[in-house]
Computed example of a mutant assay.
Amino acid sequence: MIEMDATSFEDLVSEEIDRLPQQMLAGLDNVVFVVEDRPEDGSLDLLGLYDGLALTERDRYGLGELPDRIIVYREPHLDACADVDELRDEVHTTLVHEIAHFYGIDDARLHELGWA
Rank of each mutant, 00 (worst) to 15 (best):
G48C: 09
V13D: 00
V32N: 09
L25A: 02
H97P: 01
D45K: 14
L95I: 05
A26P: 02
H111Y: 05
E112L: 13
Q22N: 11
E75N: 07
V84R: 15
A54Y: 04
L46T: 14
D37M: 00
F9Q: 00
I71Y: 06
L44A: 05
E15I: 05
V34A: 09
W115Y: 15
V34I: 14
T94F: 03
R58V: 03
Y61H: 13
D11A: 12
V35S: 05
C81E: 06
A54Q: 06
P67E: 06
E65R: 12
P39R: 10
V96W: 00
A82G: 15
A80T: 06
A26H: 07
E86N: 01
F33R: 04
W115T: 02
Y50H: 15
P76A: 09
F102N: 10
D51C: 07
D51E: 14
Y73D: 04
G52P: 00
V13P: 00
H77C: 09
L28H: 09
L63A: 13
L46V: 15
R109C: 10
I71L: 13
D18C: 05
I105T: 10
N30S: 12
I2C: 04
V32F: 04
L44T: 10
L44Y: 11
G114H: 11
R88H: 01
E40D: 14
E10T: 11
R109F: 11
V84K: 14
L87A: 11
S43Q: 06
D85C: 05
D51Y: 07
L63G: 11
E86S: 13
E65N: 14
V13K: 03
